[in-house]
Design a binder for these strands. Structure first.
Lengths: 218, 218
DNA sequence: GTGAAAAATTAGTCTTGACTAATAAATATA
DNA sequence: TATATTTATTAGTCAAGACTAATTTTTCAC
């Protein structure tokens, strides 16, 4: 069993690794956790003792199998709870993260799986990050922004970058939400506006700024 | 803002008070929390400093307005989460308490109210305890067991005492769940069996043991 | 009302997880 | 390569919250 603090370290290390960081150093961790490098060194020692990770100065930090499993479950719970808060409790995109930071540490063997089922096995959280599956597999994330979809390509909305009320209101007006399918019809060279089609309905034109704030996949 | 530990003390004190304990002493608290009286004394001092409670040796511990408000929110969240775990995630009666002990400390101003709404404003948790309302009011609990309902009286199921699989299975077979309305038709003097009517359907006879394990209100 | 038992309190310690300041090691630059 | 700079580590503290053991207060029984 791990403490809340240990879980947070494992999660951050897992995330740094997923972000492609080659060498995970105490400083990198302390920056991610916004704490002191000395505290990180203390905790690394403890986690090594518990066989949750390996640490060699030359290679940096690596999660062990055991450590990765713990991290995956925490991340899985975090993202599932975010979906819950957004879809079931009606919280906004920007409010869910902080609460999920607390909820991810709730312990019970079946909790993640039951929540997953209840939510209908969602693949992405409201920020567009893939939710690890029960077996630990994580969907490859083809996440990009609408603006990058080529003409003729289509995609699904997984999240927004901007979370200002005006943007969210605009999304509502356009009837765009998580999962909405969008087809890229045309990119206007003049001002980089894009013409898109939503599901079966007629086409709409949106600005480049808009298209760069909509996170999509595929 | 309170720590997790402080919230637990406030909750326990609130519960002891609701249970009708006249004088709430450090020993009573330490028994409820299953910890050391010395620890309780330390914490009481801290909570007095924070104006969350008053403590006089002669009168025992009393929550202040502020302390009671904190306690009520914790209890409210605890019971709402229990309903969630039971009704939405399909957990059993006996599994929800432990998880709710963790969930009750999740912080966000609107969390309890949003959860309450999502669950359809339930009045009782799976153990038959009333869920405090948003304004802090707590339903008077007329909780008793089916066996105590007089002939001709009716009631609604709020919980079970026994949580063995065989009892729960039997309940399922009889189609009795939380909220089921039961009318007491007759009490058989011979073996104290009771004849009941479920909703509009025909009558059923159940044993005294059964009737004493079904928590009902009204 | 006095002695015994129970309850409350104090003093001192421990663990966790954080911090600062000082030092050692590694890296980068001239 | 020697030096400067960044990074890692150690040593020593601190606060929260718990504990044990010792002591003081209260309460109860006679």
């Amino acid at each position: 069993m791990q403490t809340l603090s240990e879980e947070n370290y494992l999660k951050i290390i897992y995330n740094l690794d997923k972000q492609g960081l080659k060498k995970i150093t105490p400083t990198a961790i302390s920056e991610a956790l916004n704490n002191n490098p000395a505290s990180v060194v203390d905790m690394l020692r403890k986690l090594v003792d518990k066989k949750l990770l390996q640490y060699e100065k030359s290679k940096g930090v690596k999660l062990t199998e055991k450590g990765r499993n713990v991290a995956i479950i925490v991340v899985r719970k975090h993202r599932l709870w975010e979906v819950f808060l957004l879809e079931k409790l009606g919280y906004g995109w920007e409010e869910v993260h902080e609460m999920a930071e607390q909820l991810e540490h709730v312990q019970h063997a079946e909790l993640a799986d039951r929540l997953d089922k209840f939510l209908g096995f969602p693949e992405y959280d409201p920020h567009g990050d893939p939710i690890p599956k029960a077996n630990g597999e994580t969907a490859v994330t083809y996440k990009t922004v609408l603006a990058e979809i080529p003409e003729g390509g289509s995609c699904r909305v997984v999240a927004v970058k901007d979370t200002s009320p005006s943007f969210l209101q605009y999304l509502k007006k356009l009837d765009i939400g998580i999962g909405t399918k969008i087809t890229m019809i045309e990119k206007i060279p003049f001002d980089s506006s894009v013409v898109i089609k939503l599901g079966k309905s007629s086409t709409t034109t949106v600005s480049r700024v808009f298209a760069e704030n909509l996170v999509v996949h595929e």
